[in-house]
Write a protein that binds this DNA or RNA. Structure first.
Lengths: 364, 364
DNA sequence: CTGAAAGCGCTTACAG
DNA sequence: CTGAAAGCGCTTACAG
């Protein structure tokens, strides 16, 4: 059934069928604006009919331009890296100008700046940076100094817009706000928050979203209910321990990522608390651990694969423009998130005796 | 410092420097045996001096052969997929004939056979299959019927050698045996084993290794100490629960993968047991969860990235041979594993009153 | 054992 | 607005 002997259609075939030269087909394929509309239509039809796809090898050879981007990572936070790679692979394949993507792991000891410089020196023209490297200002300085465009995935550091730094994120603050509102909607009032490292923009935004939702509901955030974590499971263990040891323990914990949320579930179980009966626990990211752990975690889904795919796209475009001496301008793409409800959240078992004030309207 | 204006050296440049034609350079690069040794040496020197690297686009265009392999996966067991992709990316880049790699996720409902057939029909000439798809005999039948070479990662199903099916694995049985011996060496006698799904060859091999080590040490394996799991965290929870509820609970649990080991740790904590003080827990695979959980898991490290890299290599070679009408023969590569000792294992707190018989020599 | 010629599928100047 | 010519870097026959 599978005839591999049939060679794929070429530009010449399309040209013949459309009654034009290959040059014109090339113009249509590349979206050059000068072609007459009816000619464009004829060529498009021929392309469709033949199911023509440009041969990327030929294209790359002809344009004398090979695009390569490096992905520098450290601390592949669990499922994160996997999803990033999925997106990259999808992106690098289904593209006009496919990019060679080179992975590089930056070991804990190594200098990140040095590593990035080496990557650039090895002939790569762009860099994708996932957290936590995305929040390393020194690194961004160095890469920018080398004139190399960068795309940050899942983090948008503060400060003035840099000329070569694009970002692809979700609205972390809005998402955290939504999740907090969800918990409040279930009836929770004493809600604890486990922060991520404040060195990462995403962590700060998530905290902001939490605070905003609490304030909007007229709920005070007791200082002892906001504790530090560093996105590791281990830190989540410590944080949850501190939280649940309190005299007036929270009825819900919102952890700034899934690893720390999973750790909170473990601590709750250790203390004989039922999740979500005695304690609701929610996370952020929807990485593998969210569905590994039991009960499965209610969390915010970031479309990581899509994000890294977009990051690659942006980079490839910019590299292309840069080669052609066009001015390039950075993009800041914000993709949509989703609150994924699973089994780790429920109304608090015991309604607080003192109701929230009537002014605490949840949804105006 | 970075001069991007310098164009990379071409075959012509090498030919000129070596005083030969480009044809001869091509022969040397491709390892064609007919070239005179001293000519080869001269060309090699020129290649070295110029730091010449063949232009893959030109090569692919000229040979009219584009290699594409599909990776079909379902149930990306946590960190597994990430590591597989890392290996694939490394492999697809650093190769003579770089391969286009296309990812395809097979959703729970979808027919795996159908999916694979589509991938092949879409122009891919080889398939990489991670578990559990690697153990689907029906799938292998179908792919083989289509004449497409396959490489299985981390699983070697039983039965006669198939003509088109290669495997890259570790020696699961030997690794499990080693881990069991390690526990015995620490002084454990009542060692429980949580099995993986018996439909997967790797599961069966790990169980065999466990049994072999126990038998070799003259230890009986109580039937109630071998329980079923399906490699999910959830199943590990149930299994550990059953194990630890027993009157004479085990002093160590060996789970056939890390997810189930992590679940065992959670159950132990829930029951107030200290790990590893009261209970040792060890896993298999060394996926992300092994270092996420606390205490970090002692486990067997499989070099997954390297395995998938090799799988890709094998496939690319075979596709190449197939195109050239050579007969292809499947390979079965066994890579080395490592016992990674971390914090989840220790000698049993209470030495059993009855020592093992003197004949229970652990290391002959 | 080695090389000159033609071609892979596309694009970049240049004409018209 | 469209096309004929030359070339990207490599390889496949074919000579010698």
């Amino acid at each position: 059934m599978l005839t591999r002997t049939t060679l794929p259609p070429t530009m010449k075939a399309v040209a013949q069928l459309a009654g034009v030269s290959t040059m014109t087909v090339s113009r249509v394929v590349n979206g050059v604006e000068v072609v007459r509309p009816d000619t464009v239509a004829r060529v498009r039809a021929a392309i469709e009919q033949l199911n023509y796809r440009p041969n990327t090898s030929a294209r790359m050879l002809a344009v004398q331009e090979q695009v390569g981007v490096g992905v520098l990572y450290s601390n592949p936070s669990g499922g994160y890296l996997g999803e990033i790679l999925v997106g990259l692979l999808e992106g690098s394949g289904h593209q006009q100008m496919p990019a060679r993507v080179v992975l590089d792991k930056c070991p804990p000891g190594a200098s990140e700046v040095e590593r990035a410089t080496e990557l650039i020196a090895s002939g790569l023209q762009g860099l994708v940076l996932p957290p936590p490297l995305s929040d390393n200002a020194e690194l961004l300085d160095a890469v920018e100094a080398a004139g190399t465009p960068v795309a940050l995935v899942a983090s948008r550091p503060p400060g003035p817009q840099r000329d070569l730094v694009s970002t692809v994120t979700v609205d972390d603050a809005a998402a955290a706000q939504e999740m907090t509102r969800h918990l409040i909607g279930l009836g929770h009032r004493r809600i604890a928050f486990i922060r991520g490292p404040l060195s990462q923009a995403a962590s700060r935004h998530r905290l902001e979203g939490f605070q905003r939702a609490m304030a909007a509901a007229g709920l005070a955030v007791a200082p002892e209910l906001v504790v530090d974590g560093d996105f590791t499971y281990r830190s989540g263990l410590d944080a949850a321990e501190r939280l649940l040891a309190q005299a007036q323990a929270p009825t819900a914990i919102f952890a700034a990522n899934d690893d720390m949320a999973a750790a909170s579930v473990a601590v709750a179980h250790q203390r004989g608390l039922h999740v979500p009966g005695d304690l609701s626990v929610v996370g952020f990211d929807d990485t593998a651990i969210a569905t590994t752990v039991w009960p499965e975690l209610t969390t915010i889904r970031q479309p990581i694969a899509e994000m890294s795919c977009r990051a690659l796209q942006i980079l490839v475009e910019q590299i292309h423009d840069q080669v052609n001496r066009h001015l390039i301008s950075p993009e800041n793409v914000v993709l949509g998130h989703t609150l994924v409800r699973r089994q780790s959240d429920a109304p608090p078992r015991v309604r607080p005796a003192v109701r929230a004030s009537p002014s605490a309207v949840l949804d105006p």
